[in-house]
Amino acid sequence: MISRLLLAFPVFTVVALVILGLGAMLLKRNLIKVLMGLSLVESAANLFLIVIGYRQGGVAPIFTNVPEHPVMVLPTVQALTLTSIVIGVATTAMMLSFAMIIYKKYGTADVHKIKKLKG
């Protein structure tokens, strides 16, 4: 029972991260903090991908140093996560630069005041 809970622990972490991230996005008014919330959700998604790729007793598919009868794990999700991290870096960088320009032009980083386009 305990060991199963331990195995499920990363999934709980993922859920907690998603909730924290979404909470930050919806409740915080500072644009940078909203983007931090988004980053948290992104990390949660990446962590989730890694979690589902875990196989008990499996080893990484590196052929230089393996045990006798290795159970190698196909590193699909790890590859996906790498891709997703790269995309995440790009989006975060772009949105932070947007935040910078908005702060320069509007003089505020309060999301409730970034509403020149409405109606």
Binding site: L31, M95, F98, A99, I101, I102, K104, K105, Y106, I114, K115, K116, L117
Partner: peptide, 8 residues
């Protein structure tokens, strides 16, 4: 900044 707001 308006276009950047839309982009954001």
């Amino acid at each position: 900044g308006v276009a950047v707001e839309a982009g954001l």
